[in-house]
Design a protein around this nucleic acid. Sequence first.
DNA 1: CACTCTCTGTGGATGCCATCGACCTGAGCC
DNA 2: GGCTCAGGTCGATGGCATCCACAGAGAGTG
Lengths: 152, 152
Amino acid sequence: MDAIDLSLVDLLRGNARLSYAELARQVGLSAPAVHERVGKLESSGVVRGYRADVAPESIGLGVTALIGIVEDSGADTDDMLESLRVLPEIESCYFMAGVESFLLKARVGTIAELEQLIVRLNRTPGVASTRTTIALSTKWENRPQPVGPAVG
Amino acid sequence: MDAIDLSLVDLLRGNARLSYAELARQVGLSAPAVHERVGKLESSGVVRGYRADVAPESIGLGVTALIGIVEDSGADTDDMLESLRVLPEIESCYFMAGVESFLLKARVGTIAELEQLIVRLNRTPGVASTRTTIALSTKWENRPQPVGPAVG
DNA sequence: CACTCTCTGTGGATGCCATCGACCTGAGCC
DNA sequence: GGCTCAGGTCGATGGCATCCACAGAGAGTG
């Protein structure tokens, strides 16, 4: 991970569909060299993949909620994780410090679907309680913060 | 947004670097047709961009925190938003229902940097109080949920 | 029904890009 | 010095992006 790798990471966080030729121009290397570097970033786990950033409301996921989960004392955290993992509505799952062991970001189409999700969560073994707050609007999300040196 | 558009969106959410030729094979259209459709999805705002998914700890952002913000009564929400927007550490910003008007997801390198961020937030005009919880680990994040029909 | 307009598709042509292999170069080390 | 290796360049080639001309389906209209 030298400065050029950081530049490549920055460029790809900004636009994952840049061609190797374009990346090469930006960082001042040849296309094969960039190809090699990006391949290594991928196989070493620095770059985990490439995702289209899609407006959720345009694919019928207009309701965003954050759900904190308090575990039962003695609950098996790994089992709970597996129960959470199979729920597709849960986009993100953080294991937190504090009373609420998990913080989930869920995305559904309607409030009714959110209700169903919460019911399911409360029925999940190991869940003592849930606390849901609704996001009225998403001001921004997953904004990449620049890490590399400035790239001309 | 017909079924083919949804398939394209799904495919690109899974791998944003798929070639138009490959997308075309997957959905059963010609490459120019797919090119046209994706272009329209982009210009209509359904697809907002393409991002490399980078392991944050590998670029020196190993600390994730969620920060709730309570506004002063009478605070100007738009002004606050602008103050938040210039802080690069804030990756996501939701306007919430509830006591805490904003919920921020912040990513920093060290606990010391988190402390500085919190201090800055508490000094920001309009902020009555903040409540920070640290994510001990990220189980998953921004997992795309399939929306289109199954794609062979 | 027939005409036409529009939308969305296909197929072909062309130039750029991804990718492979051969080779070069400088650093570290015996 | 001479070996070795990591990581670069260059050149070739086949595939892809992209442009263009044109075809066919459907909606609206006389």
